[in-house]
């Protein structure tokens, strides 16, 4: 186990170089470069704000940061899930030549997605400060462990999706449908209360508690938007989900890592 992680660490220059390539590919392809990926979520937010702000009847001041944080979070999840599906195929030619720990390929995906996430988070923070003034700094600091957990969840998700997609080629299609459902079951575009009251009417409120994405979103939004620490029960929930994710990914890797080469 420690040997595995020291192997991952020994190859850090390699996967960091791959992450740098991924980032540059994304940012250099456009005329605006970095500016484009800053503008894209903002443009998206303005459109959604105009439409859904009207429908849900919420003020821009309240809705804009909510949307931005939700979209940023979801972009990260979608990236680790969908790009995670491809991670071993992207690394196939390396896997065929060098016996390196397979976990570095999902790690590459997660780190690139994590970088975009941090950029999006910075934009959101700027909006929150611009619209509602400086919040509670200690509450913001509580985001550090949250981000760490989120990173672990992202890495684990990438590992699982990557393995699943190599073992069964149509996994990605199934996962895409599943993620579409999750998109609506997670309070990304609406306030959590809106979703919970709807679900309660059908006695489905437990869906929210079991949805790790909703829990993590709550852990991020509470300090960011309201300047408060997320409740301990939510934090425990998040930690529990993270542990489960890491365990699943670890076991899946242990079971399938050696076999992967035969399926690629």
């Amino acid at each position: 186990m420690t040997g595995y992680f020291s192997d991952v660490w020994r190859l850090r220059h390699f996967w960091l170089a791959l992450v740098r390539i991924d980032l540059r590919k994304r940012y250099r392809r456009s005329v605006l470069g970095m500016g484009w990926s800053l503008l894209q979520p903002i443009a998206m937010m303005i459109v959604l704000c105009a439409v859904f702000g009207q429908i849900f009847d919420v003020s821009v001041r309240e809705y804009a940061p909510l949307l931005l944080s939700g979209l940023t979070f979801w972009a990260f999840i979608m990236a680790v899930v969908l790009q995670g599906c491809q991670c071993f195929f992207m690394g196939e030619s390396y896997i065929r030549q060098h016996p390196a720990p397979l976990a570095i390929y999902p790690l590459r995906t997660t780190l690139a997605a994590g970088f975009h996430f941090l950029v999006g988070f910075a934009i959101t923070l700027a909006f929150v400060w611009a619209l509602n003034g400086f919040g509670n700094l200690p509450a913001l600091l509580s985001l550090a462990p949250t981000f760490l957990l989120l990173f672990l969840v992202g890495w684990s998700l990438s590992v699982c999706m990557g393995l699943a997609n190599v073992l069964f080629q149509d996994s990605q299609h199934l996962i895409e449908v599943f993620m579409q459902v999750m998109f609506y079951l997670t309070p990304i575009m609406y306030k959590p209360e809106m979703l919970t009251t709807r679900l309660q009417r059908h006695h489905l409120a437990w869906l929210m508690d079991l949805n790790p994405f909703a829990v993590f979103l709550e852990m991020i939004r509470k300090p960011l938007l309201e300047g408060q620490l997320a409740s301990t029960s939510v934090m425990y929930h998040g930690a529990l989900f993270a542990i489960l994710a890491v365990l699943t990914a670890g076991l899946a890797l242990k079971r399938f890592e050696k076999q992967m080469i035969f399926y690629l």
Partner: peptide, 21 residues
């Protein structure tokens, strides 16, 4: 096999080297 096609030759030397330790 195993080149990053969008990266230059120099860069490919670098991270292929990283993979070789």
């Amino acid at each position: 096999l195993g080149f990053e096609h969008d990266a230059s030759g120099w860069e490919n030397i670098m991270y292929r080297g990283y993979l070789q330790g």
